[in-house]
Write a protein that binds this DNA or RNA. Structure first.
Lengths: 348, 348
DNA sequence: CTGTTAGCGCCTTCAC
DNA sequence: GTGAAGGCGCTAACAG
């Protein structure tokens, strides 16, 4: 790109207005349309014309204005991801994989933090509408079902709600099979002789019971060893896990609890630490199980038994539903459930 | 986009086309301009007109088309963040904080994964240009300086390069003060009687020496206890840390090394695990120090000594440079250095 | 193969 | 206070 075309400007402040399609057209001595065709792939353009235009594009450093194109084409090739917590060990792999899949097709990803305060979560969605995104992934979808459904009715694109097992009209749900996962966890603990099992749950969202907790509760009840206690209301982070475990320990005497299932690995790490500081030996006194398959669980002391989640897999399904599969909406009546695994390590 | 437009469509496929400013104008019986004024804040509009328009907006669920506005106003109110690794413990806090600061001013954040393959990293940047972002944060900026500089010349917005201590024309650099940090780390280890210090470094990028490594090398040399070894070329993740530590152990006999500085906490966790599996006691046999202040370091066994980084602070500086401070460019000649801290925990 | 015409939805400018 | 024209950069549709 040429730096100056007008000698009267100061060096460091010289900023060229972005070259437009017209600049290229003039330089190449063709019409805008021809330039447009070249940019679109160069089909149906005479070879020497194509070359002249290509040269002009390079000389001017021309890059098409994506916005102007979106305005007329009615598709932005942008997908919106509403993330509740980028810090979650699932968020980054999910976004990275979705990006890796989408980019070759010319799609970009916009990530926006979910904000429950903002119109009950709908604010985030309307932001995406303003930006004309072609599809939306809720990762996870924590707002109330009717908020999502109402939005879906007015939105002219696909929506995938990750982490939900319920069915919302106009939206595809995608989730770990929480019922099967709970069964794996409970079976494992019981097979290890654990009978006095507690659950550390996170603070969830108004009007929404986390399917994981519902599944654990039902499975434990059915197993004949109903949960000793659900410790709820803590943040799903290390401190939350420590606090929840500490509360649990303070409310029970030694031996009352012989296993703990945490909402996720991060809470489990906090729980492990609380056990350590309170002189409880894991897994001797109490077994600990988490969810997610955070890499750290492989090297914690003891290594953490966990239900791993394959965020990349989620991304693949979302990708398919959002842009790849034109028949997706028709087939999207049933929530997609991902089969769980259990990775047994030293903590249980 | 609706596939069909005939009335013969199935229920669930009926999607309202987004209401435009014209729809609102017609419904309210005013001109587009008046609607535009109302949306802009409602100044200079008669009270009853304003009310009629507001009602129409609500009834139609009208949301301005951000793209069309951007096209004419020449600012998108979108900031681009080029992230190398969303999984990094710094990335999420950075993005979340930047988002929290920007949203009240009407700014959105687009996150895009950096891809070195793509025009030497410039591809990511040009993506941002296509999307007409108003400013760009490179987090961190790993491409070669001249790639950045060349791009900056053609880009008509601010750029902040995080994690760089060098000065690039047209770009503001922002980084941890690596020299001071290295001094803290080395002083600490030496004060603990450590003399045989090794460094585990990550795989860095072509043509770029990581300032952290340069600073550690210089500081160790100056201290009279030059680094025993730099173990380089591993990924900055847990496995990389394990592998690097394992390589180190295999190349030295017991006692040859009494301290290890890892490129970041994540590698340090891997190193801790490698020590455990090889029967090395931390900190008795070998001290371990990381960088970043990952939350997990507080509950690892042993807890990890680290140089914490305040990603939120970085976000604040970036925010100021990108949109808040109109004088920023003038004052941006010197890289901004963030003073380091050292959190001493059980691993050293 | 290439050019012309007519917008996409919005805002700026300038009338009234 | 409000409206009418014009254009942001691009592409669809139709000419030639």
């Amino acid at each position: 790109m040429p730096k100056d075309m007008d000698p009267s400007l100061r060096d460091s402040k010289v900023r060229h207005k972005r070259a437009t399609i017209i600049d290229v057209a003039e330089r190449a001595g063709v019409s805008r349309q021809t330039v447009s065709r070249v940019v679109a792939g160069g089909e149906l353009v005479a070879k020497d014309t194509l070359e002249r235009v290509t040269t002009a594009i390079e000389e001017l450093g021309y890059r098409p204005n994506h916005l102007a194109r979106t305005l007329v084409q009615r598709r932005s090739c942008i997908l919106g991801v509403s993330a509740l917590d980028l810090d979650s060990p699932l968020a980054s792999p999910f976004i990275e994989r979705l990006q890796a899949l989408s980019r070759p097709l010319g799609y970009h990803i916009i990530v926006s933090n979910f904000d429950l305060e903002d119109e009950g979560g709908a604010g985030t969605l309307h932001t995406f509408v303003s930006l004309s995104v072609d599809g939306i992934a809720l990762f996870p979808a924590v707002m109330e079902a009717d908020v999502i459904e109402r939005f879906a009715r007015s939105y002219d694109g696909r929506i995938v709600a990750v982490g939900r097992v319920d069915q919302i009209e106009g939206v595809h749900s995608l989730s770990l099979d929480e019922v099967a996962a709970a069964q794996l966890v409970v079976d494992h603990l019981i097979s290890r002789g654990r009978r006095r099992i507690a659950v550390l749950t996170n603070a969830w969202y108004p009007g929404v019971v986390h399917p994981r907790m519902a599944a654990l509760q039902a499975t434990l009840d059915r197993s004949g060893s109903p949960a000793v206690q659900f410790v709820a209301g803590y943040e799903p982070d290390i401190e939350g896990g420590m606090a929840a475990m500490t509360e649990l320990i303070s409310q029970h005497s030694s031996g009352d609890i012989d296993a703990v299932v945490a909402y996720n690995d991060t809470m489990a790490f906090g729980a492990l630490h609380a056990c350590r500081t309170h002189g409880l030996s894991v897994p001797h006194d109490v077994a600990v199980v988490g969810y997610d398959g955070t890499p750290f669980g492989a090297v914690s002391d003891p290594p953490l038994t966990t239900v791993p989640q394959d965020a990349g897999r989620y991304a693949e399904v979302v990708f398919k539903l959002l842009i790849d599969d034109q028949e997706a909406n028709a087939a999207a009546e049933e929530p997609t459930l991902i089969a769980p695994r259990l990775v047994v390590r030293g903590s249980s």
